[in-house]
Amino acid sequence: MHPARELAELLGGAEELTIVCHNNPDPDCLASAFALGRIAMAAGIDEHHILYSGEISHQQNRAFVNLLDIDLTPFEPAAVRDRPEGSLLAFVDHAVPGANNRVPEGTPVDVVIDHHPNEAIEAGFVDHREHVGATATILTEYVRELDTEMDADLGTALMFALRRETLGFLRGATPAEYDAAGWLHGHADGALLRTLSTPSVTGATVDAIAEAITNRTVRGSVLISGIGRTSERDALPQAADYLATLEGVETAIVFGVVDDGIQLSARSTDSRIHIGDVLDGAFGDVGSAGGHREMAGGEVPLGVFADFTTDDAQLFAIVDQVMSARLVAELNLSTEADTREPVKDEPN
C-alpha cells in the first residue's frame, strides 16, 4: 500500500490528531504540519492541533506563520500526556521523543514523517526518507496521492518550504523536490512567495551577523565564530549561510548563547566532512547535535558555565574557548588560526 493511503487509513480511524513540531520550527516543519492537518481533516478528523516549543524568531518564519494564517499552539506537556482515547500523536520533520522536542522520552508516537538521519525511530506509521531533501516533499506527495483539496495557502506553504530547505534547490535537492515543485507551481501564490522571500530584518539580527563576521576564526577551509549572547536564535543559521560563502571557506560553524543554552549552526560543502556527524561527535555527550552532510545544528545547555559567572563577557570567553576547542579537536584542525580579523571596508 502506498504510504499516503496507509496514513489516510490510520487517520480515518481516529477522532483527534496532535501534531508536534520540533523546537523552533522552520518552514519545512511548519508546512509539513499544515499539510498533515489538511490530510487529517479530509480523513474525517474534526479536531487537530499543531504544537510547537521554543520560538518562531526568524523573520521569514514569523512572516510564514502570519501570512499563511497557520494555527499554532505553544507546547504544554498536558497536551500530549492527557490526550483523549482515539487521539493520535504525530511528529513531522523530527522523529524521537525528547530529541529536539519537549515530548517526554519514551512517549508512544503514532505517526512519524521525516527526512533527517535517524536510526531510533519507533511509531505505528513511519515514513522516513533520508534520500529526499525536505519533509515537505513527502507531504506534497501525500497531498497529490490523496487528492487533498488544495488552496493558495497550502500550495504556497509547501513550495516555500521546499525552496527554503534546499536554499533555492541548490543544497540537498533531489529529483523529488523538482517534481514536487513542478506540481505545486500551479497551486502557489507567486506574489506571496516573493513577500515571504524578502521579509524585513531586525537590527538585532544584523548585529548578530556582524558579530559573527568580526569574531570569525579561520583554520584552513574551516571557519568558526562565536557571537556571544543574542536574542536572535535564527541569526545563527543566517550567519552560517553567509560566512560559508567567503572565499576559501568550505565549512562554517557559528555558535552563541541564547537564553539558557548554547546554540550552534553549521554549513559545509567539503566532501570530506559530514557536518552533522562532526557536531554530534563534538557535542553529543553534553547536548544534542547533528543533521545532514551539508547542514547541521545543535544545542548545549549552559550548565556549569552559567554557575561559574553572571558576567556575560566572562561567561562567553569560557564558552568560546571550550566550544572552539571541541570543534578543533573533532575536525583535527591546527590549533593555530589563520586569521581573526574583522571585515574591513575596501579603500576608495
Rank of each mutant, 00 (worst) to 15 (best):
E165Y: 07
I113E: 03
A8Q: 08
S32V: 08
S200D: 13
V328Y: 09
L167I: 12
A266V: 06
V201G: 01
L51Q: 03
V254Y: 08
R38H: 10
T166Q: 07
V258M: 13
T174P: 07
A173S: 14
H49V: 13
C29T: 15
K344L: 10
A244W: 02
Q59N: 08
G190K: 02
T269W: 04
R144S: 08
D320T: 04
T214V: 13
G226W: 09
E15F: 09
G291W: 04
T140P: 13
G248T: 12
D147S: 13
A136P: 09
F255M: 15
E346W: 03
N66W: 00
D93I: 04
G44H: 07
Q314R: 01
R5M: 00
S271D: 10
R102C: 05
H48C: 06
R194V: 09
G190T: 07
T135K: 09
V143T: 10
F160E: 09
P84K: 06
V249D: 11
G37D: 09
G155M: 11
L17G: 05
L302F: 05
T251C: 13
D153A: 15
A313R: 04
A208C: 13
R216L: 07
A40L: 05
D93W: 03
M41G: 09
A134I: 08
E299T: 14
R81M: 05
D26M: 04
C21V: 01
S334K: 01
H131Y: 14
F169I: 03
R62D: 02
L243W: 05
A79N: 00
T73W: 01
G281C: 10
T205F: 05
S334G: 06
A296T: 00
T230L: 15
Y242R: 06
T310R: 00
F160P: 14
D26P: 07
G228F: 12
G284M: 10
D127C: 11
V258T: 14
P301V: 10
T135V: 13
L223V: 12
G276D: 03
H22K: 06
N118S: 15
L331K: 02
I50F: 08
H22N: 08
T214G: 04
M295T: 03
S334M: 00
E105T: 03
L327Q: 12
E105M: 05
V96T: 11
L10F: 04
L146Q: 01
A173D: 08
S231R: 15
E346I: 02
H185V: 11
L243G: 07
E141K: 01
D179C: 02
P25E: 08
R129V: 14
L167C: 12
I224W: 10
E330H: 02
I45H: 05
D259C: 11
E299Y: 02
H131Q: 15
H48Q: 05
P77I: 01
T156C: 14
E47N: 10
D277L: 10
A282R: 05
T18M: 09
S271G: 01
G190H: 11
R163W: 07
G261A: 15
